[in-house]
Amino acid sequence: MGCCYSTSKRTRTPGYEEPTVLASQTPFTVSEVEALHELYKKLSNSIIEDNLIHREEFQLALFRNRNKKNLFADRIFDLFDLKRNGVIEFGEFVRSLGLFHPNAPLEDKITFAFRLYDLKQTGFIERDELKEMVLALLHESDLELSDDMIESIVDKTFSDADINGDGKIDQEEWKAFVSKHPSLIRNMTLPYLKDITLAFPSFVVRTEVEESD
């Protein structure tokens, strides 16, 4: 009995999925998934020790402040929480971060960004959503703009992106807009993910020890 408990400890964690399975479904190697598990354990036990990432833990990791409200961080959390049960499980964490891998398909990154900005999840980015996001960004930064300026920025951007002029940006229009402005999805790529095993090597080392045993 003792032998089995010692090796299956991680598999009893809620939401834990086998690294080999996750590696087969994402751009990550098995070692990288193992390294992500090290990071996940740290994030998912920072406030509530249950091996699940709660919204406050996500906020704490992003802002060093568990109570900091941020529209965009909330949207990211909601999109990572694929099962929509209020927590990010390990499999969800790895699959979602996979989109941010330098080798992930560009198409997937563009689609994720679209879903992120489609606040009301209508399948379109609407003008009032765009203005709400600009206001949220200004609120968190030191940048101050008059309402007239904000209106003009939103109008200009919207008219550039809304090619068919129906008052909303659909996925095809978004794709075309991003291809004209590739910097818009620069934050959808985390070069760091290619070096994740260097940043969190402990499990990799332990695996090698176990394998040599």
């Binding site: 992003l62 960004l137 003009s152």
Partner: peptide, 26 residues
């Protein structure tokens, strides 16, 4: 950058909430 030439999505993409690299800081 002159406000009239700002791209609203460019502004938004600079949100700290969209910068996931913070997750990896020790």
């Amino acid at each position: 950058v002159a406000p009239a030439t700002m791209n609203a999505f460019e502004l938004i993409s600079k949100s700290q909430g969209l910068n996931l690299s913070s997750l990896f800081e020790k």
